[in-house]
Design a protein around this nucleic acid. Structure first.
Lengths: 126, 126
DNA sequence: CTAGGTCCTGACACTAATGTGAGAGGCAAG
DNA sequence: CTTGCCTCTCACATTAGTGTCAGGACCTAG
């Protein structure tokens, strides 16, 4: 699979895919002429990388974590504690986001007193 | 309240406070000599700003949103839809994070088969 | 063989928030 | 007045991921 195909398959830019490889998140064989040749599980790998990026995990951390994600045999105590640490960080982020979302909801309902009411029964705004 | 006090009160660096003011997130009077003088609600405002930053809302968006957060009278249809949009974005982020957290949990339990077991009853690792 | 589309590397730009440092001025205590 | 700490502005650096451009090499269709 060439890089353009992988890009099309995942929706991730060619530039980013090269970056992922550079960071050691993604491995690719090379053809004799030097072009990248990705294996069939590359798209799933890219999807996973994107999810982890979305969770705010940086590439350096991913480099540490990824080996033990696909291969439980790669577990070490340090790696396990690293996983727990990240899980914790995500938990805290979720808690913060949930609180912020609740705050926004409060503001939204203040700003829109008709929320959830039937049309035609709007409150007067003034 | 001078900038150093506000920094101490909130745990946010002086540099960041100046940045918040520059971005229009935070207002400060000036003394005749040009030093910033923050009002008594500045700490709460800074806390709010920090929460929103934590939720991944950038300063430009905050500039739009903040006026209608403290003042429901500032509501406009555009502002309301902006609020809803951000609330939605946060919802999606929470969903993604929750999924990622679940994935990490799965990996953690694979990596740690003794999770939740009583000490002394560990499974053999090999 | 050639033309067009794809790929390569390398380098520089951008964003957004924050760090850091320089040089200058403010202000309160001794 | 001086000393020491705080503040001011300006400006450049950093981080991480991504965009974009340049110059060159590859490869497949015609």
């Amino acid at each position: 699979m060439r890089i353009g195909e992988l890009s099309a398959a995942t929706g991730v830019s060619v530039r980013s895919l090269r970056y992922y490889e550079e960071q050691g998140l993604l491995s690719a064989d090379r053809t004799s002429s030097g072009q990248r040749a990705f294996g069939p599980d590359a798209p799933a790998r890219v999807d996973l990388i994107q999810d982890l990026f979305g969770a705010g995990i940086c590439s350096a951390t991913m480099v540490d974590l990824l080996p033990c994600m696909s291969d439980p045999g790669a577990r070490t105590p340090k790696l396990r504690s690293r996983l727990l640490e990240e899980r914790d960080r995500i938990s805290k982020t979720i808690a913060n986001l949930t609180a912020t979302q609740a705050a926004l909801d409060r503001i939204i309902s203040e700003n829109n007193p008709n929320e959830g009411r039937l049309p035609g029964l709007e409150l007067r705004a003034d």
